[in-house]
């Protein structure tokens, strides 16, 4: 069954790696719903957060192909239940309308929107939240002359993760422990190797 998966990839910081990872998806004609690159909790290690809508089998294979790349340290995949995530959205609306319409003010408050910039001609609000939440506010603001909208890629924290500090130490050792040496998913034999 297809569902949303968030893939978290820990990598070295190298030019061209984004392309190497992206083509693993494009080659299989899989659309990336959202992609974010950022520093991680470990200095010098980068973190990609990629969201796709696929079956677990496909996601697992994709993660193995990603881990195969020389500069990739590790790739994890998680369902939405296993992560805490946010997306940031910005909305630009005419100031005159929102200043006068009390209803709008209430709506914005309901959606947890925060004003980032207030100018005479327009105001920019930000909302951080899940896709549905930021999407809802578009619908709400449309009748009030929404000028511009943009949403960031998803950033996600894996609930059940102790971070990458210890793992990296294992990776740096020439003779690593089992975990560092192999694909994480292969540890879960019962789940993975079913006939």
């Amino acid at each position: 069954m297809k569902q949303e998966y968030t893939i978290t990839v820990y990598t070295e910081n190298q030019v061209g790696l984004l392309n190497r990872i992206a083509i693993i998806f494009t080659r299989r004609k899989i659309n990336i719903d959202s992609l974010n690159t950022s520093p991680s909790e470990v200095e010098s290690v980068h973190r990609f957060t990629i969201v796709i809508n696929e079956t677990e089998e496909v996601v697992r294979k994709l993660c193995r192909q990603i881990e195969k790349q020389v500069e990739v340290l590790k790739a994890y995949y998680n369902t939405n239940e296993e992560i805490v995530w946010q997306e940031l959205a910005l909305y630009k609306v005419p100031t005159e309308i929102i200043a006068e319409e009390v209803k709008v003010e209430r709506l914005l408050r309901e959606h947890g929107a925060k004003a980032v910039v207030i100018r005479k001609d327009y105001t920019v609000f930000e909302v951080a939240g899940h896709r549905e939440e930021t999407d809802n506010l578009i619908k709400v603001l449309e009748p009030y002359g929404l000028i511009e909208f943009v949403r960031s890629a998803r950033v996600a924290i894996i609930k059940d993760s102790a971070g990458f500090h210890l793992k990296l130490k294992e990776f740096e050792a020439a003779d690593p422990g089992e975990d560092a040496a192999e694909n994480e998913f292969l540890n879960r034999q019962e789940e993975v190797f079913t006939m």
Binding site: K61, R64, K68, V192, F193
Partner: peptide, 17 residues
């Protein structure tokens, strides 16, 4: 030797990577 080959095309009962 390549973990990405395990289960790529044929489901494995026992992987000996």
């Amino acid at each position: 030797i390549d973990p990405a080959e395990i289960d790529k095309n044929v489901k494995t009962t026992v992987p000996v990577w």
